Computed example of a mutant assay.
Amino acid sequence: MTILQDATTAPDLPSIGAPNASPIEGTKSVRVPHAHVSVRQARRIVSADLTARGVDRVVVEEAEAVVSEFVGNAVFHARPLADGCVRVRWKVKSGAVEVEVRDGGSDTVPKPVRHSLWAVRGRGLRIVRSMAHEWGVQDERNGRTVWAALGGPSRRRRL
């Protein structure tokens, strides 16, 4: 599997975040193939980076769940970007983490579905909504971005 690393605005990160220190701020992104195996890979990359930055463990775990859901939905429901990938981007600022996944879009709009005891699928965005301070979907000319703010409010408010 090929993972394409995009530029980062964060300084070189230590291998383990310093306890009781403020998280290292910055933005990072990766492009992963539009494939089911990318869900696990994206989750591991984001988790390792946030842990190294010293982000609170609860927020890291929430980010893992959100990345898994967003990348899984992008692979299952949407088209890839023009390069055959899905872009995962995350930003750490003031202790909060904003995660976004961009794909090539689809004919359906991501939204939480009604609760059903018998449903096999459809709980993921309800779980994201329960963890995220806020989340949203932004349609763009060549795709769609789904994002969530964890551990505090987003600075963008693109709902």
Rank of each mutant, 00 (worst) to 15 (best):
R114D: 14
R155W: 08
P11L: 05
D139F: 11
W90A: 03
R79Q: 15
Q138P: 00
K28P: 00
A119H: 13
P33E: 10
V92H: 09
A52T: 08
V46P: 02
R129M: 05
K28W: 01
E61I: 02
D56W: 06
A21F: 01
K93S: 14
A21C: 06
R155S: 11
S15G: 07
R158Q: 14
P110F: 02
E98M: 11
L117K: 10
L150E: 03
E140Y: 00
N20W: 10
A96S: 15
W135L: 09
R57V: 13
G136R: 05
S38Q: 07
V37S: 13
A42Q: 00
R43D: 00
V55G: 06
R158K: 14
L13Q: 12
P11G: 06
G72T: 01
L150A: 02
H133R: 12
K28R: 11
P33Q: 11
S154K: 01
V46H: 06
G72C: 01
S15N: 12
A132Y: 03
V30D: 01
D12V: 12
V101W: 04
R31Q: 11
F70A: 01
A7W: 09
E140Q: 10
L159W: 12
P153W: 04
E61N: 13
V60F: 02
G54Q: 08
V120K: 13
I127V: 15
R141E: 14
A18H: 09
V59Y: 07
S22Q: 11
G122N: 04
A96K: 11
R57M: 11
A35E: 11
A148N: 03
L4A: 07
G26K: 02
A21S: 14
N73T: 05
H115Y: 12
P23M: 09
V39A: 08
G151F: 08
P110K: 03
S38C: 05
V128L: 11
P112R: 02
S94R: 14
R155Y: 05
V39Q: 04
K111C: 09
R123F: 15
A82N: 13
R121S: 15
W147Q: 01
A96N: 09
R121Q: 13
D6R: 15
H36M: 14
D49E: 14
H115L: 13
S94K: 14
W147R: 05
R129K: 14
A21G: 01
P33M: 09
R43V: 12
W147E: 08
H77C: 07
S106H: 05
D139I: 03
R44M: 05
H77D: 07
K111Y: 08
T108V: 15
E134W: 09
G72R: 00
L117C: 00
A65S: 12
G105I: 11
P110R: 02
V39S: 04
R79K: 15
P110L: 06
S15C: 05
V120M: 09
R89G: 01
D56I: 07
A74Y: 03
R31E: 07
V30M: 01
A63V: 00
W118L: 14
R158D: 10
N73R: 02
R89L: 13
A74P: 03
G151V: 00
